[in-house]
Design a binder for these strands. Structure first.
Lengths: 193, 193
DNA sequence: AAACAGGCTTAATGTAGTTTAAGATTTGAG
DNA sequence: CTCAAATCTTAAACTACATTAAGCCTGTTT
């Protein structure tokens, strides 16, 4: 069952009793998403926390010039959500799109609040998760300022080796903040060495 | 009293009773910091959550080429901490340095854990605070990818107008990810308009 | 008053990355 | 299997920003 994946994910951080597992099971919903289908589009409110059971998503922005900028990829056992829009309930500027056929578990805001109210451990759980993500993001920003495109590509490979096979180079280029053409040049130079 | 500032800050998010205020007062310490003095240096473990009562700090990294990259400025009523180092207890790669004579309130890890254990509302409080910071950081990363240096400078002025007076241009340049020389050119062009 | 230092500007030159455009290769739908 | 669409590569011209180095203020030290 899909919900098992989510329970295992939570158990890595905290212990859950039968009652909590029951509540979890009854308050989430499972959705199957086709490749290229959207979980969120610009202008919509982000209404769910999405937990990826299988498959892979990208979350990105399209800038005024029409270019895509990948904020993150989310595969198995990861969360994808526009937290800003989710909390403020304002329209999102982001897209969340399936790169592969995928399955997600969705939690609506009212249900998340239910967990926060009744089981404070969920506050702690999501605090810890987001603290980790915050540190990751901070490092990425620092790297963007202080490294060359080649260094960023190498460290992407280092951090997400499994994604290299699953993603086209255009997506990776968008993630590290360069054009696909320049990434192509970098790859050529690296293979010469 | 300095502690009042912290209590007011918390009260913007949650209600505190007498007992909690007592605990807070007895478990934090107040430090006066001179200009150019460090709260944290590369290689040290980050042992405190720091809340700025007065003054202003920068948190930055020095890259292998010896250049400073400002991650953030923290003035009155803001937190400055290397969360990564604080939680992993590994040496930090960051510096936290006073830009002005300052006063901070420090919470040690064991005391923060005490609050998390005994008053779950602190979990929620810091979850909400870091969620906001996360969204801010995400927007900054997106902007770094999709805007020119001039746009980033204008939006810095827009977001932090009060910092313009308090900071030298070199610091602002380092924050938006360009050299001071290029910032100078941007300012010149803007003033021509 | 002279000397010095820190921060700001200007301008010449250098470079990492973009743009555009064309051709080659792979993928996927029917 | 086939054809169209998506992706990848190459290369030339171009641009945004970095580097270096010199000169200028303003405030501070002696």
């Amino acid at each position: 069952m899909e919900i098992e994946t989510l329970i295992m994910h939570f158990k890595a951080y905290l212990s859950l009793n039968e009652e909590e597992i029951q509540e979890l099971s009854s308050r989430v919903s499972i959705r199957t998403i086709k490749r290229r289908q959207f979980l969120l589009s610009e202008g919509e409110k982000c209404k769910h926390y999405n937990f990826v059971v299988s498959g892979c998503f990208k979350m990105y922005k399209i800038d005024p010039a029409g270019k895509e900028h990948n904020l993150l990829f989310a595969c198995e056992n990861e969360w994808v959500t526009d937290i800003g829009s989710f909390h403020t309930e304002k329209p999102s500027e982001l897209y969340i799109e399936a790169i592969e056929p995928s399955t997600v578990i969705q939690i609506k805001k009212e249900d998340l609040l239910f967990f926060y109210m009744n089981y404070p451990k969920f506050d702690r759980n999501f605090r810890v998760i987001i603290e980790d993500k915050f540190v990751e993001l901070q490092n990425r920003l620092l790297q963007t300022f202080s490294s060359t495109a080649e260094e960023r590509y190498l460290s992407f490979l280092d951090q997400y080796p499994h994604l290299l096979q699953r993603l086209p180079n255009t997506q990776i280029a968008s993630y590290i903040g360069i054009t696909p053409e320049f990434l192509s040049r970098i790859r050529k130079e690296l293979s010469r060495k």
